[in-house]
């Protein structure tokens, strides 16, 4: 098949103009898909940046001290002078609390994702590469964990071991390992059949070397997109745990904690709960949009290549 720009210069084909108008082209499914992915990526990146950048810069930004209480300026509504997001029941600046709380929430999230990503990739790769009983054990574990309402189990762990940051990080990591594991396993299953793996076998390379040095590097890029998505889930999970009273204890003002503390004042001061929640929502929606757009694009590139 020849594309329009490279039609052979035979006299006959020169005569025939294309019937594809700009309008048709704009409405073609290929162009529409491209547009959808672009909109999602741009919007997602924007929303993510709007939340993440201020959190990173929280120490630098001219914000009131996180724990500075002021009896005189309690329950100030948003856009009060000096308090963009207003103040809470103790007169603390909500924006400052949200940004500093975000640092804690995101740190927990990143740590949890690193752990779950590592565990998931290692177990998934072993299961996919070696098959047999390793695969059976890992697969059954994944299935079992996915079919359980894990939140209750996590609450039990937090209740038994105390709501410290390491415990909560660990708990979130444990909750999340099946996703990267499942993905890595399926990718490695495909990779395993490729000729270079057979070649390595013939050359007498130890299997584990092949796996670590060749197979995993080939699949890791695809896993990382999903791991990023897990960061958003980790933030959600931390906030849900905090909301249920199993979050890190004060003075750590994580997002979930701020919301659950503010819940008593919903009727009088809506912003104490609404604004921190909106920040979580914007971040998670942003990351999900970004991931969805990127996934569409990757999928399409692959489709176009084959």
């Amino acid at each position: 098949m020849s594309t329009v720009n490279e039609i052979p210069l035979a006299a006959e084909s020169m005569k025939r103009p294309t019937a594809v108008t700009k309008r048709l082209l704009r409405r073609s499914s290929a162009a529409r898909r491209e547009r959808s992915a672009k909109v999602k990526i741009v919007l997602g990146a924007f929303l993510t940046a709007v939340v993440v950048l201020p959190i990173i810069l929280a120490q630098v930004l001219p914000l009131p001290d996180v724990d500075a209480q002021a009896i005189t300026s309690r329950f100030l509504p948003p856009f009060s002078p000096g308090h963009l997001f207003g103040t809470d029941q103790l007169g603390r600046d909500i924006l400052s609390r949200v940004l500093h709380g975000g640092q804690v929430s995101l740190t927990i999230g990143v740590l949890a994702v690193v752990i779950s990503g590592l565990v998931g990739v290692v177990l998934g790769a072993l299961a996919g590469f070696f098959g047999g009983w390793v695969d059976a054990v890992v697969s059954r574990l994944i299935e079992a964990q996915l079919s359980l309402p894990l939140l209750m189990m996590l609450l039990l762990v937090v209740a038994l071991f105390g709501p410290s940051i390491p415990v909560i990080t660990f708990v979130i990591a444990i909750a999340q390992w099946p996703e990267p594991a499942r993905l890595t396993r399926s990718l490695v299953l495909v990779e395993r059949e490729k000729p270079y793996v057979q070649a390595a076998k013939v050359l007498g390379l130890p299997q584990i070397t092949t796996l670590v040095k060749h197979v995993i590097p080939n699949v890791i890029n695809q896993v990382i997109v999903v791991v990023l998505l897990l960061l958003a889930t980790a933030v959600l999970m931390e906030s849900a745990l905090s909301f249920l009273g199993a979050g890190p204890q004060r003075p750590f003002a994580t997002w979930g904690r701020i919301i659950s503390d503010g819940q008593d004042f919903i009727t009088t001061s809506w912003w104490i709960v609404t604004l921190p929640g909106a920040v979580i929502a914007i971040l998670v929606v942003g990351v999900n949009l970004l991931a969805d757009g990127l996934r569409d694009r990757v999928r399409r590139r692959k489709g176009a290549a084959s």
Binding site: L236, S239, A240, F243, I259, G277, I280, A281, V285, V287
Partner: peptide, 12 residues
């Protein structure tokens, strides 16, 4: 957005 917002926040 619907699948990513915290459910307790939607409730509130």
């Amino acid at each position: 957005a619907g699948q990513s917002m915290p459910d307790f926040w939607i409730g509130i």
